[in-house]
Structure formats: structure tokens, C-alpha cells
Measured scan of single mutants.
Amino acid sequence: MSIQHFRVALIPFFAAFCLPVFAHPETLVKVKDAEDQLGARVGYIELDLNSGKILESFRPEERFPMMSTFKVLLCGAVLSRVDAGQEQLGRRIHYSQNDLVKYSPVTEKHLTDGMTVRELCSAAITMSDNTAANLLLTTIGGPKELTAFLHNMGDHVTRLDRWEPELNEAIPNDERDTTMPAAMATTLRKLLTGELLTLASRQQLIDWMEADKVAGPLLRSALPAGWFIADKSGASERGSRGIIAALGPDGKPSRIVVIYTTGSQATMDERNRQIAEIGASLIKHW
């Protein structure tokens, strides 16, 4: 058993032996400061991975655009179909130039040979490839079927209504393609630790998130040596930015963190910096 498999397999085991986890309101002070700095709403939640207890939250039940963070949920739905014998990670999917949409750094290189379902999930999560996400959405029946999958998990909040890139429109008060921090954190925890997916599929999902290559300026920039993080970021119109993550010290995840912001006029660099500073406060007061 690899170190990674050891880590995921023991998450339920550690729940019975973990020390009490204490919240630190200092992080919420930073979240509120980020709102002031960005001139935008910020949603935040910090969840204990083992118990599911909410440690801190700010606007946990307000809607925010999901942006590309939905791609983790999408690959969770794909893995659920794999577990049920309805899909194979090794199945190759062929597509054409007409299928390519904006920001497809991986799929645009494989027009001649296509990509496997496994490769598409990797591209969608680690590189946020939009065509990969659309191709995967097609395999499960489209955005409405992803919403149905989430409903069956008990998440009646999170919804996907459109495809890439239209889902990134982020119109104020538009509930399409949105979630709430509390709903996203709970759903992510179920995917990573619950019985919905097999152990192998849970491991695969967290491996893809751990290999994320496009979230460096966010929480990863504040991470001390030896800490673990598996994450997925997102960005969209109207100053929207977000990240969902499982992270913790000693090389294993122990908390879920979800951060969303929307409605800012700030630059992408400034949005990144504010999220990184929230992460730094979280780690300092861990």
C-alpha cells in the first residue's frame, strides 16, 4: 500500500482517536478583511474532515458561482459510474476541433488520438481543461445529471445548469451553476471519506486533486513544508474566484476548506493574494 493509499484508508480510523479540534476566530477576521479589500462577498467554511463538524464559517449558506470547482464533483460522478460498472477509466473518447472550447490546454493536443476517461478527469482537475469537462459531462448525461447525482448524495443546493464556458457567467442573483460553501464542503467530504465511492475511487479523486497544477498562487502558496493539500480552484466573470481543498499537517488531510468570492473589481492577482492570506491565517491558527 502506497503512502497515498495509506492516508485515505486511515481517514475513518483516525476519527475515533483524534484530539479535539478548536476553532480560531482570527481567520474570520481575515475573511472579513478580504471582503473589505476586494469590495466583494466572500464565503468561507472550515470543516473537520473526520467528524464533519463546522469549525468556522462566514456566509456559509449564501450562493456563489461554482466556477471550475464543479470539476471535482463531476469526476466524482464519473467515478461513481465506474464503480457501478457503467463506465471505464480506460475508455478512449474521440472528439473533433468543433468540440474544443476556450481554455483547453490538454485536449487541444489530442485531437488525433483522443483521450481516456482517466486522462480527461486528470486534465479537468489538474489543468482545469474546459473541453475535458464538457466531454465528461456528456458521458454522464449533461449538467442536469450532475445535479441529480448531487441530489442523490443529499446535496439539494449545488446545481450545474450549463456547459463550459457559459457556466462562468456569474450573474448576480442567478442561481444557475452555483453552490453554497456549507453544501460544497459537505459534499466534498462525502466524496473523499464516505461510502458513495469505493476506496480506490476515493483515492483516485484525491490523487487528481493533489496533482492540481493551476492553484499555486492560492492556499498552496501559504503551505508550510510537510503539509498535505488536494485542491481545485476556479475563476469566472465578475471578479469571481474560489477554491475547495482538503489539507492538513503531517502529510495527511484533516480539514476541508472552501473559499468563494464574487462581485469584485480587483485584479486576479489581488483576488489570489487575499485567498492566500486567508490560508496563511488558517495555518497560523491551526
Rank of each mutant, 00 (worst) to 15 (best):
Q4P: 08
E175N: 11
R159L: 03
I140F: 07
I11R: 04
D231N: 02
P20L: 02
T267D: 13
I256M: 03
T158S: 11
Y95L: 06
P143A: 04
S264D: 05
L199R: 15
P25H: 09
I206M: 15
K144M: 11
Q204L: 13
L135A: 05
I125M: 11
L111H: 09
D161E: 05
G226K: 07
Q88D: 15
P224H: 02
G90Y: 12
E210D: 07
E145D: 10
H94S: 10
P249N: 04
E277L: 11
E87I: 09
I244K: 00
S254D: 12
T126D: 05
E87L: 10
M153L: 11
L19C: 15
P143R: 12
M153D: 05
N134D: 02
R238F: 13
R162T: 09
A183K: 06
A9T: 14
V257I: 14
D250L: 08
F6I: 10
L218R: 01
W163F: 14
L73G: 04
I244H: 00
V82F: 06
V21A: 14
I283S: 02
E61A: 14
T158H: 00
N50C: 12
D174E: 08
F70I: 04
D250E: 12
D174Y: 03
R176Q: 10
V106G: 03
A170R: 08
S2N: 13
S122R: 11
R81Y: 06
I243R: 00
P65C: 03
A266C: 12
P224K: 03
H285L: 04
N168R: 02
M115L: 11
L136A: 03
K213I: 08
P12D: 06
E175M: 12
D177A: 01
S80A: 14
Q4K: 15
A200Y: 10
Q37E: 12
E166I: 06
G226T: 07
S80T: 11
P181A: 03
S221Y: 07
R255S: 01
T262M: 11
E61S: 13
N173M: 13
I54N: 04
S264M: 06
S221I: 08
A246Y: 08
L223Q: 02
D177R: 00
E277D: 08
T198Q: 12
V117A: 02
S221A: 13
K53C: 10
K213A: 14
F228V: 03
D207N: 12
D212C: 04
L74T: 03
R91E: 04
G234A: 06
R238T: 13
G216S: 09
N152Y: 10
T186H: 15
W286G: 00
L218N: 03
S96C: 12
T126K: 04
E175Q: 12
R162C: 06
M268K: 05
S221K: 13
V8F: 15
P253H: 06
P172E: 13
S281L: 09
E237K: 10
M67V: 07
N152I: 11
M268Q: 08
T178M: 02
E145A: 14
P172S: 10
R162Q: 08
L188V: 09
H5L: 14
L49V: 10
G43L: 00
D269E: 14
I3M: 09
A16T: 12
G39D: 11
H151R: 15
A235D: 03
L55R: 06
H285K: 05
A34T: 06
R81G: 05
D99A: 11
L188W: 01
P181T: 02
R92A: 07
L282K: 00
A183L: 03
G216L: 05
G90L: 11
R92L: 12
A200L: 08
P181V: 04
K252M: 11
S96P: 06
M66V: 11
L167I: 09
P224V: 01
K102E: 11
M180K: 13
N50V: 14
V82S: 07
S57G: 09
G114D: 13
P65R: 03
S96G: 13
A225R: 13
F149S: 04
E56R: 05
